[in-house]
């Protein structure tokens, strides 16, 4: 009994000692977090980076959404904070201000490719040829009818436009923590709003009218795309919003809608024909370069032809690649410490 007591006491002491030792020890693994759209790409690069550079650890990549990634990046400088924040939307001026206020003054942006936002239904559903205005009329809380704003009366897609299938409206859109939502708001809802021809009103009221989703048949998904997919499986009539790469890997259960007559593919997005696309980027904390080993090499490796380039590993995973000149320019800007300006 006594020995057991002594042993436990010793172990407790050891654990306490280990704790203090931990604080002194420096971190040698890159920490990345943020956008769930960027997560698969970032993880693949991290893993290949570990394979190609055996002297570095495989970086840790966490999710949490674009907003979460940028917020964590801006928490401050030091080993307990993030090195890279993944984001599928640009850092806003207020987010950058928050960064500066917390002492994170050196923020560098790296754009590594593009992604399309696609609208998909269950595989057995009707064919959708969507226009932004259709989506706006299906999603907005208030829509114009005969020049008056009224609570959204539509319950069926064919009521919005006879060309659409006779199918009940139910849409799963990304929550506000996702970068995808921002692009969706700008490229789909605002565009659709303009096309719908709202009556004259103040700018703020206009923005609210365009961007406020209804609550009855629109669900905002805070989790990742698997959650959206689960919604579609439980309600086959639903339309879900996905990233192109997610759709691509689940083509056997999802049917994609065209937007403005263009089908989302790597080619149509790369050429800018498909309207709902956005650049993917990550933000690097400059103060950690040279402190956390491998940070610069990771960025260079990410932007290399074999990863982000055309025909590279990330293209196979569903990334819409940028041109090699563009990638080279991004690397050049990163190494010469060009600061991010919103």
């Amino acid at each position: 009994m006594k020995t057991a007591l002594y042993a436990s006491a010793a172990v407790v002491a050891l654990a306490a000692f280990g704790t203090t030792a931990a604080v002194a020890q420096s971190r040698d693994t890159i920490q990345i977090a943020g956008s769930s759209t960027v997560l698969p790409f970032s993880s693949i690069v991290a893993e290949e980076f570990g394979n190609a550079f055996p002297d570095y650890n495989v970086p840790n990549v966490a999710g949490g959404g674009s907003g979460g990634g940028k917020r964590q990046l801006c928490e401050g400088v030091g080993e307990a904070t993030l090195d890279i924040g993944n984001s599928s939307s640009k850092m806003s001026a207020s987010e950058l201000e928050n960064c500066h206020a917390n002492g994170v003054t050196d923020v560098r942006e790296v754009v590594f490719g593009y992604d399309g936002i696609v609208f998909a239904t269950g595989i057995d559903q009707g064919d959708f040829a969507l226009e932004p205005v259709h989506l706006y009329k299906a999603i907005a809380a208030q829509v114009p009818v005969d020049g008056e704003m009224v609570a959204n009366p539509y319950t069926n897609w064919s009521e919005i436009d006879p060309s659409l299938p006779d199918q009940a409206i139910f849409v799963a859109i990304p929550g506000t923590n996702h970068g995808t939502r921002e692009v969706f708001d700008i490229r789909v809802l605002e565009a659709g709003c303009e096309a719908a021809g709202l009556p004259e009103m103040e700018e703020d009221a206009m923005e609210a009218a365009c961007l406020t989703p209804r609550q009855d048949v629109v669900v905002e998904i805070a989790g990742d795309y698997t959650e959206t997919l689960a919604r579609l499986q439980s309600n086959p009539e639903a339309i879900g919003v996905f990233g192109l790469s997610f759709y691509d890997q689940n083509r056997d259960t999802l049917k994609v809608a065209t937007v403005s007559g263009v089908e989302p593919t790597l080619e149509t997005i790369a050429e800018g024909e498909y309207p709902v696309s956005r650049p993917l980027q990550f933000y690097v904390k400059g103060a950690h370069i040279g402190v956390i080993p491998g940070l610069e090499d990771y960025v260079a490796f990410f932007l290399s032809e074999q990863m982000a380039g055309a025909g590279g590993t990330l293209e196979a995973a569903g990334l819409v690649p940028a041109s090699s000149e563009f990638l080279a320019a991004q690397l050049e800007a990163f190494t010469s410490a060009v600061q991010y300006q919103p």
Binding site: Q31, I32, L39, N57, N60, V61
Partner: peptide
């Protein structure tokens, strides 16, 4: 506490990710 990250190392000690 950040344990939901993608981690492709076997942790060598309790301080590793």
């Amino acid at each position: 506490i950040g344990m939901s990250a993608f981690i492709a190392n076997i942790p060598a000690n309790p301080l590793d990710s």
